[in-house]
């Protein structure tokens, strides 16, 4: 038995919003792979929960009217990986979430829950940052959209208001169109582990594949919140597609990131890994975009 004070089950998105207003002290629970573990650990013991897990309306992936790739917040990691639209437009995301925990965790874990925790080691986070995802929140006054970089406030804290639930994650068309990306997770084990560093890169090449039109990179665990490396990105844009550019880009990330010492890895090791991953991920992105180095 879990130490739960009360359970409020949402029957629709509107009902979830109503429950949020009626029970401001209650914690939202999506798949529960984090919340229920925290209840067991005692960290969230004795609290009331609002379950949104049964809201099938928040599952599934489609292209919306504006051309965004729309991922319902309760879509599980395994369903994201298997989805044909994801495989076609943003395979790096499907691959990234295929590295979360183990198979059973990927069946219960939801992309919305993963982002709402504000955990920087979340495997989805760096790729969503690198593709400038938009978080859709539904509250009493309707829908609010927040760019993912603003959604993460600080470690463990996200911008979700007392009346809101997260209902979707949107990948804007401009982010995925003519763009190829790659995610690399550096961890101590191949499964059931948390990333030491995760790096997600994507690039758009000129039609002749000779020039980088745009490069985006984001890290999980390189700082207190998932972060981009703007100096490196600006440095690579407009440069020829070459090994030199890739190396210069990789070195430039050190001007942007600020990893910390922890028992998982030292600052020096993380910096070394960050440069190496930037180089590998950009190299692979170029290949996927049809370019050669």
């Amino acid at each position: 038995m879990y130490d739960i004070k009360a359970l409020y089950e949402a029957e629709s998105t509107a009902h979830a919003v109503q429950l949020r207003l009626e029970h401001p002290e209650a914690q939202i629970i999506a798949g529960g792979s984090d919340v229920l573990v925290q209840v067991r650990e005692g960290k969230r013991a004795g609290k009331a929960l609002i379950s949104i897990y049964m809201l099938d309306e928040l599952r599934g992936i489609r292209i919306d009217d504006e051309g965004n790739l729309r991922i319902g917040s309760l879509t599980s990691f395994s369903h994201i990986t298997k989805d044909p639209l994801i495989q076609q437009y943003i395979p790096a995301l499907g691959e990234a979430v295929d590295m979360v925990g183990g198979p059973q965790i990927r069946n219960i874990g939801t992309i919305g829950g993963n982002t709402c925790n504000g955990v920087t080691s979340a495997d989805s986070a760096s790729t969503l940052h690198a593709y400038e995802a938009i978080i859709e929140l539904t509250g009493a006054n309707g829908i609010r959209r927040v760019p993912i970089k603003d959604f993460y406030l600080r470690a463990g804290q996200t911008d979700i208001r007392p009346d809101e639930i997260q209902t979707a994650i949107l990948i804007p068309q401009d982010s995925y169109k003519d763009t190829a990306g790659y995610y690399f997770k550096y961890a101590m084990r191949n499964a059931m582990d948390i990333a030491t560093t995760g790096c997600s890169v994507n690039c758009r090449l000129s039609p002749d594949k000779g020039t980088f039109e745009r490069v985006r990179i984001a890290y999980g665990v390189a700082g207190p919140v998932p972060m981009r490396a703007p100096t490196a990105e600006a440095m690579a844009a407009g440069k020829p597609v070459s090994r030199e550019t890739v190396q210069a880009f990789a070195q430039a990330v050190l001007q942007d990131i600020n990893p910390r010492d922890s028992w998982r890895a030292s600052r020096a090791l993380r910096q070394h890994i960050a440069v190496e991953l930037a180089s590998r991920c950009l190299t692979e992105s170029v290949h996927r975009a049809g370019g050669a180095l």
Binding site: Y2, L7, E9, I29, G32, S33, L36, V37, S51, Y53, M54, S78, P103, Q104, I105, N107, I108
Partner: peptide, 19 residues
């Protein structure tokens, strides 16, 4: 504690019975 729910494997220990 693994069981199959709608043909997919889940850890039943972190799954609410009401679900």
């Amino acid at each position: 504690c693994t069981v199959l729910i709608d043909k997919e494997a889940f850890n039943s220990c972190i799954y609410l019975a009401v679900w």
